[in-house]
Simulated scan of single mutants.
Amino acid sequence: MAGHSKWNNIKRRKESQDAKKAKIFTKLSKEIYAAVRSGGEDPTTNLRLRMALTKARAENIPSDNIERTIKKAAGNSENIQYEEITYEGYGPGGVAVMVKALTDNRNRTAAEIRHAFSRNGGNLGENGCVSFLFDRKGQLIIERNEEMDEDEVMLDAAEAGAEEIESEEDIYLIETETEDFEDVKNNLEQKGYLFTKAEVTMIPQTTTNLSNEDAETLIQLIEKLEDNDDVQYVYHNFEMTEEQLHQFVN
């Protein structure tokens, strides 16, 4: 989990905010569309849609955009069908990489994902080649501030049903079982906590360190994958050292 938060810190500092926001809007709009098509337009009965809406609001996507996407999906006036595909492979140094995509053109997306791996020191593998190295978990991130008492945060999270709580320099990371995610999130929200991230994700069981050269190449691979509009999520088990963190941030 710590490595994942470091990766997010690096991304925040390296990426253009405007470009990042446009990409996020595109990806979340596709997720909302696919959620409605698969489970209906009522978020009270559609968990996938409910989670997509939570992410969209956290990213400040305008309500008008959200409603327009929901109505478009409910009517399917454009006759778009998105297919969910998971790609698995290895990056430089044997790092496990999983890619979750939503696409209306399987052949195009597969070719682009394969190209990204091959051009950046990786190899696209068969389904199942790395997924066993990850656990599906709920993850909540709370940004620390001076008014927070660490013991109180830990106690509140534990009472809410959290499986694991980790205190870092600038954040608290809370991990839950997938089926407990919404209950933990709702319980903590009722106590006034706000989240910088709240989602069900894939957590690596073990992490891998890399040489500086391989780390740089892996970062290029992940950025190339995340830049693809069809890619919703990229998961990996790379653990960055403090030295590499400072090197890539600075």
Results as ranks from 00 to 15, higher is better:
Tyr33Glu: 14
Thr196Pro: 00
Ile141Val: 12
Ile171His: 09
Pro43Asp: 12
Lys55Asn: 11
Ile142Ser: 04
Ser167His: 05
Glu112Ile: 01
Asp227Arg: 13
Leu133Val: 06
Ala101Glu: 05
Ser29Val: 10
Glu143Asp: 10
Ala110Arg: 04
Asp149Val: 01
Leu194Arg: 07
Met51Thr: 06
Asp180Cys: 08
Thr103Ser: 09
Thr26Ala: 15
Glu59Gln: 02
Ala160Ser: 09
Glu59Gly: 01
Ala73Leu: 03
Gly75Cys: 07
Leu124Met: 04
Ile142Trp: 08
Asp230Ala: 09
Ala56Asp: 08
Leu140Thr: 05
Val231Asp: 13
Lys6Gln: 02
Thr54Ser: 14
Thr26Cys: 10
Asn46Pro: 01
Asn212Ile: 11
Thr86Asn: 09
Tyr235Leu: 08
Glu213Asn: 12
Met154Glu: 10
Met51Ile: 01
Met148Val: 05
Phe238Asn: 13
Asp214Cys: 14
Glu163Met: 04
Thr109Leu: 01
Lys21Asn: 12
Asn9His: 10
Phe132Ser: 14
Ile70Cys: 01
Arg37Glu: 14
Lys197Met: 07
Pro92Met: 13
Ile32Asp: 15
Ala110Glu: 06
Lys55Ser: 13
His115Pro: 00
Ile24Met: 14
Thr241Lys: 03
Glu216Asp: 14
Ile70Phe: 02
Tyr33Val: 07
Asp135Val: 05
Ile24Arg: 15
Tyr172Cys: 01
Gln244Ile: 05
Ala2Gly: 07
Ala162Pro: 01
Val200Phe: 07
Glu175Gly: 07
Leu133Trp: 04
Asn105Pro: 03
Glu88Ala: 14
Thr201Pro: 06
Lys30Val: 12
Leu221Thr: 08
Leu194Pro: 01
Thr206Glu: 13
Lys72Val: 01
Lys14Met: 15
Gln190Trp: 01
Asp227Ala: 15
Ala157Asn: 02
Gly192His: 10
Phe238Ser: 13
Lys55Asp: 11
Lys21Gln: 15
Asn120Tyr: 05
Tyr233Asn: 13
Arg136Ala: 06
Leu188Val: 06
Tyr33Ala: 14
Arg37Met: 15
Ile61Leu: 07
Leu47Thr: 09
Lys21Met: 11
Lys100Ile: 03
Val99His: 01
Ala160Arg: 07
Val36His: 14
Lys100Leu: 08
His115Met: 09
Ala56Trp: 02
Arg68Lys: 12
Glu164Ala: 06
Gly39Arg: 07
Gly138Gln: 02
Ile61Cys: 05
Ala116Ser: 05
Asn105Gln: 05
Ser38Trp: 05
Ser131Tyr: 02
Arg12Cys: 03
Met202Trp: 12
Asn212Pro: 01
Glu88Gln: 14
Ile219Gly: 12
Val99Asn: 04
Lys14Cys: 13
Phe132Gln: 13
Ala73Ser: 12
Glu175Trp: 04
Thr44Pro: 00
Met51Tyr: 05
Gln205His: 11
Phe117Ile: 03
Gly128Ser: 11
Ile66Ala: 09
